[in-house]
Write a protein that binds this DNA or RNA. Sequence first.
RNA 1: GGCGGCAUAGCCAAGUGGUAAGGCAGAGGUCUGCAAAACCUUUAUUCACCGGUUCGAGUCCGGUCGCCGCCUCCA
Length: 465
Amino acid sequence: MPLTLHNTLTRRTEEFIPLNPGEVKIYTCGPTIYGYAHIGNFRAYIFEDLLRRYLKYKGFKVTQVMNITDVDDKTIRDSQKAGVPLSDYTAEYKRAFFSDRDALNIEPAEYYPAATGHIPEMLALIEKLRDKGFTYQSEGSIYFRISSFPEYGRLSGMSFESLKTGARIDADEYEKEEARDFVLWKARRPEDGDVFWDSQFGQGRPGWHLECSAMSMKYLGETFDIHCGGEDNIFPHHENEIAQSQAATGKKFVHYWLHCGYLLVEGRKMAKSMGNFYTLKDLMDKGYDPLAVRYTLLSTHYRQQLNFTFDSLEASAAALKRLQDFITALASVKKTGECHQIENLIAKARSEFEASLDDDLNIAPALGAIFTMVKEANRLIADGEMTIAGAVKILQFLKSIDTVLGALDFSQPESDAEIEELIYLRNEARSNKNWNEADRIRDKLTEIGILLEDTADGTRWKKVK
RNA sequence: GGCGGCAUAGCCAAGUGGUAAGGCAGAGGUCUGCAAAACCUUUAUUCACCGGUUCGAGUCCGGUCGCCGCCUCCA
């Protein structure tokens, strides 16, 4: 079945057809590293990770670029507040971002270009725009004249008029011809301190929108397949990217624009002032497993608003535990021979899993199919019908779908002589009906995080997270 | 004011006009020395509200109420 994706540009769910067969080029708007990323940011990155992983699952070769915004108003402001050079200041948040990414099992993109590393590319783009007459200069800054780009507003559905009348008071004091115009190159100002670059346009620094156009075209070409971001990026950021890029090249910039919905916390917008603002570290400090956070952020359809609650986080942890316990149970099946029902069970789950994800990454029914299979397989285990061969097939299937989910752990606990010895002693005690001694040993193991399960095939143990 | 989205059980969340997936939590039971895990049974006569179309609507149309996002540098 073909993969379909909802394209913000057309407001339709369309079959995904890459420019080059078998290859997908994706640009994903990344973090501004002026602070620790919060779970709302990671909702977007996890959605993009799901897209990336599923494309790979479907056999596409994926090239993904995620920009790192390491110079803008906020990074400058906060680094000065902290009294450290900009690059030192952003280095810590960049490190934290990658560390959180790894903890959330988000696959690394192929490229993480930083804005400060691409000033020449941005200047070249401005030159191109200037030569084609799309820019004007005012008080040392270069602006993009939106009235010169008639298609402006197509992505966001913003009309020319509403932009004029609805515009807020401009937050910065740069002079523009019209409020909706946006800055390409910001003239150096005293409050920028030592953060500026020399250029043919004078000393200054790039505007935010510019980096995404310059860096995406550098790494992916003037036209590429998919561009993602949060829905709040649709306007003005992505609208401006389209204007800049298409004005410069005369070509279509991006074929599919994908945007994920906002994350709410306990039904409200996440905000520091509301006390419901969480970074990954905040949740880990509360004892939550980052993979449970991943599962929570992953398990709601990406275009839906996601209501993050601690109840749902705990439900996610429990759901993952159910899957992990299932994996453990499969690994300890001892019966030999064939288990003929397994093939059908897997085929059904796989086809539902794929059909759902093919439908604009509809993850909820995909997960539903997995849990339905788990229940049926658990029944086979409980009835003593599961065989080693069947268990191996299911494990292979789970590994294959986990290349998409990225939430499971297939590592088997290493055998531990001390634990095995204690289990042996406990089972000795049990066979002598010395329950006090048996329970004493079990409690001792529980204290060091080892949980025992007595099954028909003997006692197995697992570590508790 | 303009543009867009959402309202489904205690919580999270699917649902493509044909009679409400799945997960978590809860209740009862089976297994177990007791647990753990698992299994079985059970948990929405009902999908914000009011109308309409239809043989039939959570699903389509209109309206009302509520919540959320964007409207110049927030994923």
